[in-house]
Computed example of a mutant assay.
Amino acid sequence: MFEKATIFNTLFYGSLGVKVLLHNFLKKLFSDFSAPCYFRTHWKLYCPGCGGTRALFALMHGNLRQSLKYNPVTLLFLLDVLVTTILSLIEKKNSKYSTSRFRLILNITLLIFIVVFSVLRNYLLYTGIDVLGDFS
């Protein structure tokens, strides 16, 4: 039998290796293909996803504060996917629990946050405060 420490080390270093490979792959993918944002190009506004890629990379480096500064919607979206998946698995495993109403409320709350966040960020841009620094 394997010892717990050996299994833990294998999982830890394996996941670390996957993280590095995934980071390098995504960085190469997004540096080669960088489509301009329609909102930013034509309307000089931030779309709800502006800063999302930078937020994802900051999160992959373990920099939560920087990730939230770039775009908090990215982290909230990832948490929403995780919670929704867990709730779906709970519902599938035990059919007497219905989580569909909670998932709907969670997704509507996320949508409201995205709209409010986008309006506030663009209002700040209108008043001269460029949060991401893309228009400076």
Score class of each variant (00 low, 15 high):
74 T>R: 00
107 N>T: 14
25 F>S: 13
73 V>W: 01
27 K>P: 06
25 F>A: 15
43 W>T: 10
35 A>P: 13
136 S>A: 09
9 N>G: 07
115 V>F: 05
122 N>P: 04
72 P>M: 03
86 I>K: 13
32 D>T: 11
23 H>T: 15
52 G>S: 11
14 G>Y: 00
58 A>S: 00
30 F>M: 05
57 F>A: 01
93 K>F: 14
15 S>L: 15
76 L>R: 00
17 G>K: 04
51 G>L: 01
83 V>G: 00
73 V>N: 01
23 H>A: 12
84 T>C: 06
109 T>W: 06
46 Y>L: 00
18 V>S: 11
85 T>R: 05
24 N>D: 14
129 I>S: 10
69 K>P: 02
88 S>G: 14
13 Y>A: 03
132 L>G: 05
13 Y>M: 04
92 K>V: 08
95 S>W: 09
85 T>F: 11
33 F>W: 14
75 L>N: 04
96 K>Q: 14
90 I>A: 04
70 Y>E: 08
120 L>I: 11
115 V>E: 07
86 I>S: 04
128 G>V: 01
121 R>H: 01
38 Y>F: 13
108 I>E: 06
92 K>H: 13
71 N>A: 06
67 S>I: 01
70 Y>G: 00
57 F>M: 03
101 R>A: 13
74 T>H: 01
64 L>K: 00
129 I>M: 09
98 S>F: 09
111 L>M: 07
89 L>A: 08
50 C>V: 02
83 V>H: 00
110 L>M: 10
3 E>W: 12
66 Q>K: 15
41 T>Q: 12
127 T>K: 13
1 M>N: 09
84 T>P: 00
33 F>N: 13
97 Y>L: 04
77 F>V: 07
39 F>K: 01
107 N>R: 15
124 L>Q: 14
44 K>E: 05
49 G>E: 01
5 A>N: 15
103 R>M: 03
131 V>D: 01
29 L>H: 15
42 H>Y: 11
82 L>M: 11
102 F>K: 06
86 I>H: 02
34 S>H: 10
133 G>Q: 00
87 L>W: 06
132 L>A: 05
98 S>Y: 08
52 G>Y: 02
123 Y>A: 10
49 G>V: 06
31 S>K: 10
33 F>V: 13
132 L>M: 07
121 R>S: 02
126 Y>S: 14
47 C>V: 10
34 S>L: 12
54 R>P: 00
25 F>D: 13
71 N>P: 05
136 S>P: 06
28 K>I: 13
69 K>D: 05
116 V>K: 09
136 S>I: 12
63 N>G: 03
97 Y>T: 11
41 T>C: 10
30 F>L: 14
124 L>Y: 11
39 F>Y: 07
23 H>C: 09
104 L>E: 12
96 K>N: 11
58 A>I: 03
126 Y>W: 15
86 I>D: 05
126 Y>D: 10
65 R>G: 04
83 V>E: 07
97 Y>A: 06
37 C>M: 12
26 L>G: 05
64 L>Y: 02
91 E>N: 09
26 L>P: 01
94 N>R: 15
36 P>Q: 11
4 K>C: 07
41 T>D: 13
129 I>G: 08
31 S>L: 10
59 L>Y: 02
36 P>R: 10
27 K>W: 14
70 Y>P: 02
46 Y>Q: 03
11 L>W: 08
65 R>S: 08
57 F>W: 00
45 L>G: 03
106 L>P: 02
69 K>V: 04
